[in-house]
């Protein structure tokens, strides 16, 4: 398995919308450009939906995961499935901080099926130690189960 991950910050000012890209493939990835036509989009902050076209470049069959308590009111491109999950509340419940990354990874694993939960668990264990790993896995698991219930 080969993977790439890189961010794009645009204007370097606090509060500006930022993006991060991930590519993974079984073959070597020669492409080095920004991702313009994503298969999956994860929106970490729901206020971005109002400000930015977060679904830009998405194709039919794509999945967008949005961290929000509410339903999405803005127009969604045809054939794109939007999954809303309140990752902030999940993170607060399991980690105690509004850091939603691992919860959203759990939601992504469940929604896309591209990565298995055990793989995610291993990755979190490698990144965090002890109690922090347990909390983050709990957050990921809660999000995974909540999305699995929907899908």
């Amino acid at each position: 398995m080969h993977a790439q991950a890189f961010p794009a910050f645009g204007v370097e000012r606090r509060g500006a919308p930022v993006q991060a890209f991930v590519r993974f493939d079984n073959k070597k990835i020669r492409l080095r450009s920004q991702v313009y036509e994503p298969d999956y989009v994860i929106v970490q902050d729901s206020t971005l939906v109002k400000d930015v076209n977060v679904f830009h470049g998405m194709k039919e069959g794509g999945i967008a995961i949005v961290n929000t308590e509410k339903a999405i009111s803005s127009p969604v491109p045809e054939g794109v499935r939007v999954i809303t999950i309140d990752a902030t509340s999940i993170a607060l419940k399991h980690i105690g901080l509004p850091i939603t990354n691992t919860a959203l990874m759990g939601a992504f694993a469940a929604a896309s099926g591209e990565i298995g939960f055990t793989a995610l668990e291993d990755a979190v264990k490698r990144r965090f130690k002890g109690d922090l790993a347990t909390k983050n896995i709990a957050a990921a698991k809660a999000a995974y189960n909540s999305v699995k219930g929907v899908a």
Binding site: G10, V11, R13, T47, V52, N53
Partner: peptide, 10 residues
């Protein structure tokens, strides 16, 4: 990414 109103990027 097209940026609309309300973002601090403007």
């Amino acid at each position: 990414m097209a940026i609309g109103t309300g973002c601090t990027a403007r």
